[in-house]
Design a protein around this nucleic acid. Structure first.
Lengths: 186, 186
DNA sequence: TACAATGCGGAACGGTGGCTCCGCTTAGAG
DNA sequence: CTCTAAGCGGAGCCACCGTTCCGCATTGTA
């Protein structure tokens, strides 16, 4: 691979990360190319479709998130570990529009296209959730998918309606709702 | 106004209500016209833009919702009234894609374009919320905008990720999170 | 320096969707 | 029944966006 090609590829990735984070997948391909300082043709030489470029960005984001799940998991306090991961996730999703778009695609497409990457995320959350439930701090009747939906929903809701305030307070309400009564009294 | 014109106008409204409910605002205008059994030209004679037709439908939906807020408000139990209105709202928003789209538009546009109608909805919720807070059953640190965001968020989250299950369980988590500790123990 | 091969830019294409325009139809008054 | 104005349909215009194509530039080797 020629040196200029490698350089351009990296430029495109950088520009796409920034642009998708700011505008989500709705941004036109031409805008990403413009920001990268290349022509659209160049972009399409490196990535077969817009979707493929988007995936490259998002997969990287999810990997980062997964790493922070393992870190948090070392913690002694299972409920705290779960909640702090959810907060971390909400923060990421709120600040990176592409993650939000990726996670809020209609269920089918999400599971088909992203396949294992999505499962990995769900599995990571499930470990934390199960541990917190076993510890008796978190209610058992809320599944991992619902947890995911709640976090994504909170981010969507805060973005769309109350642009002013972040989603922290809303997430706190959700986490309080997730606690068992016994845990809440403690 | 000629009789056939009035008839067509009504057909368009009916078709739009059904189509927007099922598909949201993303559905092409031609599809609405097709379902109404008229040409696009006829549709545009009655409504200046797609947006205008959409508004006509949604305003009607919000009015219905507002009516049910007043009904619920007669209840003796303030927290129950709030929660049952939120549930009613979540049910409507989940089953009518147009309402979801309308409420999840970016904040600015929502407040500018829908103006008073949106304020009416917010005011209705605020009455219920304030009463529940005064009764000591619901935490005071969550504002009306956040309540709206939470409901819309729950609906968005349930639609996007876990298409299978409804949003009832997620809403229950949120409502539990909204209760004061004292109320939860009772 | 010469010369392939690799890579590049951006004009152009095709599809989509909102909206307009105009020749034809039809309601309904006289 | 006639006649006119209100109303209708849908082909077509325009703008947007993803993707392709090809003549030209750049790289890196001999």
């Amino acid at each position: 691979m020629r040196a200029d090609a490698r350089r351009n590829r990296q430029r495109i990735l950088d520009a796409a990360a920034a642009t998708f984070a700011a505008e989500g997948i709705a941004v036109p391909v031409d805008e990403v190319a413009r920001r990268a300082g290349v022509g659209v043709g160049t972009l399409y030489r490196h990535f077969p479709t817009k979707e493929a470029l988007f995936e490259a960005i998002v997969i990287d984001r999810v990997d980062t998130l997964l790493a922070s799940a393992s870190v948090v998991d070392e913690s002694q306090d299972p409920a705290g570990a779960l909640f702090s991961f959810l907060a971390k996730m909400a923060g990421d999703v709120s600040s990176k529009h592409d993650l939000l778009d990726a996670l809020s695609r209609a269920g089918v497409e999400l599971k088909e296209r992203w396949g294992s990457k999505f499962d990995q995320l769900r599995a990571a959350i499930d470990v934390l959730r199960q541990r917190a439930v076993d510890g008796g701090a978190v209610r058992a009747d809320v599944g991992t998918d619902e947890l995911l939906s709640l976090v994504v929903g909170v981010c969507l809701g805060s973005k769309e309606i109350g642009a002013a305030h972040g989603c922290d307070r809303m997430l706190r309400v959700v986490c309080d709702g997730l606690r068992t009564r016994a845990a809440a009294e403690a």
